[in-house]
Design a protein around this nucleic acid. Structure first.
Lengths: 308, 308
DNA sequence: CTAGTTATGCTCACTGGGAGCATTATGAGC
DNA sequence: GCTCATAATGCTCCCAGTGAGCATAACTAG
């Protein structure tokens, strides 16, 4: 029996390129006339790219001019119906997460607020906005509409688990999938020909790209807690409040200022530079820098995000 | 500019199928005459398999007779040199982790102790065995042989971080990659034509399959701590000691018995059945079963493995 | 009945994190 | 210069989770 029968498929590398600016997480999208925005996507150059990651870096550089720092493979998407435009060839996409410091809007692309795509993921404001309230209400309706009692119970459970309390930021992907399965996203209508949902559920992307973005957010939120990835998104020197705001932007929740400071300082993640930020108002903050040697001391250094 | 130029590649689905029996984690390999053991691997059927995961389930079933329960995509491997036997076509593999309850040895395949592949990952015995001692010694030598002081320091750091203390079970993949990079694995010799390492570093698999196995172990150890995946590996009813031994087998460390019991019972992960195990020696243990509704109550239920 | 073995109950100390009060250092407006 | 608003920073108190170990209960083998 052959151990290595292989299928021929068409593969692209899709990138979720994330930056944080003005307290909001943003990701890069590209526009094509007459189409929803899409994640930047490029091919593997089978001849030149020794690895998938090098392929991604190459075309991101050539296309957007960005030299991405941190890169991490997310997931490989290969559902049959993910690219309805394609022929019989299976369209497989390897999704990547890349982190960059805020920059000029790059060539042929623009930054979009992550929470314009996934509005329910921003829980920094304790009162849910009208969009989120509508989504929660629609989920209740969906749960109550199950065919029989078992289905209704199971739906209600999924809603309760994923939309909390307690809020679990890492469940971003599961929330996206729940909304898709509840037919509350325009993607569902697009993929099935059903009528569009009556409520605003954020900006949809092309193909399954919003799902890939949700995957990236989940992964990034998880990683935040046990690896020092935030610093990829910050300038070399930063105040603790800037650090906190960046973490909060990604995590989608607010944190207790004094405790955050205590945690970060005690963890050895950062060291003071002695420099002060010029202050707008209030006492000027000390500027800190990341202390890479923390990896030697603590096996899993991350900023404390109390997800649970 | 095309947003969707795609490369044609040859894709397989490789499975790390894990079970735990007699206190040892095992994974399934297939043998081909004259070759090292390999992970079971199969093609996507582009016509029939609507998703990659369904494709994996289909060929695992048809080939081994196993109906796998829990399945999770691990990583996609696409390095140019990962399949030196291949022609110009890029050979891409999507690795999956699957968990099954212990079974008869399936068709055309056999169970292999995970720690026969990755002997340094079993830290349940506080004294390192002779193999592990040799590996650690060889790593020290490698670190000391760096070209200049910076390289030596960086190597020593990587060794210290990955081989602890404190021991971090989740770094299994990083340890594998460190050993590969230190030229201590026969795979390095095979891939580069260099002479084989002089020490025993466990059973190598074909291609990059041992790397995929290490990826699976890392992922599984991580998942253990925040999702109730252990129960996929256990019979419906089990004693708390069986549960503990299963966790220890996967985590590669030993746990404090009373505290483990307290943790598991308080977490709501299990419920007593009132039944008793027939005892070999000592007081008979109560049999417990997994309580799925724990997911409603706790957002991230897992058995406590103190990795840090 | 005794020794050996495992299950189970419980205590104690320590730590990390949640919450909030208090103090210090700055800019803006007068 | 004085006062107020605004941040940064320092510190305390409390509690839940957890590491470690002692003590007791319930079996089996002889």
């Amino acid at each position: 029996m052959m151990a290595d029968a292989a299928a021929l498929v068409a593969m692209t590398l899709d990138a979720v390129i994330v930056a944080v600016s003005q307290g909001r997480p943003r990701l890069l999208v590209v526009d094509e006339p007459g189409q929803p925005p899409a994640l930047p996507s490029g091919p593997l150059d089978v001849e030149r790219d020794a690895t998938l990651e090098l392929g991604l870096r190459r075309w991101v550089r050539s296309r957007t001019g960005l030299e991405v720092g941190y890169v991490e493979q997310l997931y490989t998407f290969g559902d049959r119906d993910r690219r309805p435009d394609a022929g019989p060839q299976r369209q497989v996409s390897v999704g990547y997460l890349a982190l960059v410091e805020e920059t000029e809007p790059p060539l042929d692309a623009r930054w979009v607020d992550v929470y314009a795509l996934l509005p329910w993921e921003d829980q920094r404001d304790p009162e849910p906005g009208p969009e989120e309230a509508a989504i929660r209400a629609a989920l209740e309706v969906w749960a109550a509409q199950g065919a029989d009692a078992d289905v209704r119970r199971e739906r209600a459970e999924r809603v309760a688990v994923n939309f909390g309390p307690p809020w679990d930021g890492i469940r971003a992907l599961e929330r996206y999938e729940l909304l898709y399965g509840a037919h509350l996203l325009p993607e569902w209508a697009r993929d099935t020909g059903a009528p569009p949902p009556g409520i605003d559920t954020g900006i949809a992307l092309r193909f399954d790209h919003r799902r890939i973005a949700a995957t990236a957010l989940s992964r990034l939120r998880g990683k935040l807690t046990y690896r020092p990835v935030v610093f990829e998104l910050l300038p070399e020197r930063f105040s603790l409040l800037e650090l906190q705001h960046t973490v909060e932007a990604l995590a989608g929740i607010t944190l207790h200022k004094q405790n955050f400071r205590r945690l970060v300082e005690r963890s050895g993640l950062v060291e003071g530079t002695g420099q002060r930020a010029r202050s707008q108002a209030g006492r000027p903050a000390e500027l800190f820098r990341f202390r890479p040697s923390v990896q030697r001391e603590r096996p899993r250094p991350g900023v404390g995000v109390p997800y649970r």
